[in-house]
Simulated scan of single mutants.
Amino acid sequence: MIPGLLGLHHVTATVDQAQPDLDFCLGVLGLRLVKQTVNFDNHRVFHFYYGDRRGAPGTIWTTFPYHGQGVRVGTIGAGQVVSTAFSVPVASLPWWQDRLAAAGVALLATDARPDDAPRLRLHDPSGLVMELVGSEQDERAPWTNGGVGEEQAIRGLHSVALHVHDAGPTLDFLHEVLGCTVHHGDGDAAVVDVGRGGPGARLEVRSGGGVPRGINGIGTVHHVALAIGSEDEQAALREALVLLGVEVTPVRDRQYFRSIYFREPGGVLIEVATVDPGFTWDEPLDALGTSLRLPSWQEADRAAIAAGLPPIRVSPAR
């Protein structure tokens, strides 16, 4: 077991059109756009990062709007993150219910969950399953310039739910290799604390139920990223994974963090990302998300890249 995992870092999803994604995340959820850049593997596609004021690890939701790029609609299922939860004050849930209704967002039925936390369940514009989970234990400072007051605003990610066909190998891997703490629940779900645990540092592992195999595409989560304290700890984790026979990528430079990627035994793609250098690496804190940022190796092609992206407007939240 290698120490160093701190909690969630971010969750990345494949979505449909860029503008509805911006309007929903900014105008309805009240998140901050902390970075607009491109998919480093396909510069015809935006990569939006949403989060708190700084884009702190554990608050970050990121999207690839793949509309018009020949990407099929995906299937949410086993071997994937099947839902992403955001943390809000528990007393704010009735306010959020009214806000979502006013925005035309229908609520989905909720089921029994191992943590028994009250929640609202919904679809985003691309069909992704999201939840707003009421918490009395989340002391993170929210982003409040997004049209949502401090008493209601999202504090960051709460947790993500993974679905696998067989929970045993997944839970063993999370505990024995990644050092997570597993709390076995009743039935087919377990809560897994990453690092300190609690809101922003929690996974839920589900199994059973005859769920079909997930297929990546629009309306599905591509991967979940866990935060690690340093590049040295990341390198030690990578070496340990290689020795265990886990197929893991080389370290990749994502400009705002360094990353490695691998799949846990149930097939869910996991990224481990460093905390530093963070989103102020290439623009000031007060200007985060206000202009297109490109990695240094793509700057020479800025005009052509910008021309190939769909037009967007970053509207203030309602």
Results as ranks from 00 to 15, higher is better:
residue 92 S to W: 06
residue 211 V to L: 12
residue 107 L to M: 12
residue 247 E to D: 14
residue 298 Q to H: 14
residue 227 A to Y: 01
residue 95 W to V: 09
residue 124 D to W: 02
residue 16 D to L: 14
residue 212 P to I: 11
residue 254 R to Q: 11
residue 301 D to K: 13
residue 304 A to K: 00
residue 271 E to W: 03
residue 262 F to W: 11
residue 150 E to F: 03
residue 128 L to D: 02
residue 59 T to A: 11
residue 117 A to Q: 08
residue 158 H to L: 07
residue 141 A to R: 14
residue 16 D to C: 02
residue 83 S to L: 05
residue 195 G to I: 00
residue 41 D to Q: 13
residue 60 I to Q: 13
residue 304 A to R: 15
residue 278 G to Y: 05
residue 199 P to A: 13
residue 167 A to R: 14
residue 132 L to M: 14
residue 31 L to S: 01
residue 1 M to K: 14
residue 264 E to Q: 15
residue 57 P to L: 01
residue 205 V to Q: 08
residue 49 Y to F: 15
residue 15 V to A: 05
residue 99 R to Q: 09
residue 32 R to D: 03
residue 34 V to G: 07
residue 189 A to G: 03
residue 279 F to N: 13
residue 139 E to D: 15
residue 104 G to Y: 12
residue 35 K to A: 09
residue 298 Q to V: 00
residue 194 V to F: 00
residue 20 P to H: 07
residue 130 M to R: 13
residue 236 A to V: 07
residue 291 S to T: 13
residue 183 H to E: 09
residue 269 L to I: 03
residue 205 V to D: 04
residue 267 G to C: 09
residue 274 T to S: 15
residue 217 G to W: 06
residue 100 L to H: 00
residue 52 D to W: 01
residue 9 H to K: 10
residue 56 A to C: 10
residue 222 H to I: 02
residue 237 L to V: 02
residue 152 Q to H: 15
residue 261 Y to N: 03
residue 196 R to T: 12
residue 261 Y to I: 07
residue 100 L to W: 00
residue 247 E to C: 01
residue 212 P to S: 12
residue 141 A to V: 15
residue 179 G to P: 02
residue 124 D to S: 13
residue 19 Q to I: 07
residue 199 P to M: 05
residue 312 I to Q: 13
residue 295 P to R: 13
residue 240 A to M: 08
residue 73 V to L: 06
residue 318 R to I: 04
residue 66 Y to Q: 11
residue 257 F to D: 04
residue 100 L to V: 01
residue 317 A to K: 10
residue 234 Q to A: 08
residue 30 G to E: 03
residue 307 A to G: 14
residue 187 G to M: 07
residue 146 G to M: 11
residue 118 P to F: 09
residue 274 T to V: 10
residue 74 G to R: 07
residue 72 R to N: 07
residue 132 L to W: 05
residue 8 L to A: 10
residue 182 V to M: 12
residue 16 D to T: 06
residue 72 R to H: 08
residue 163 H to Y: 01
residue 144 T to C: 14
residue 36 Q to V: 09
residue 308 G to P: 11
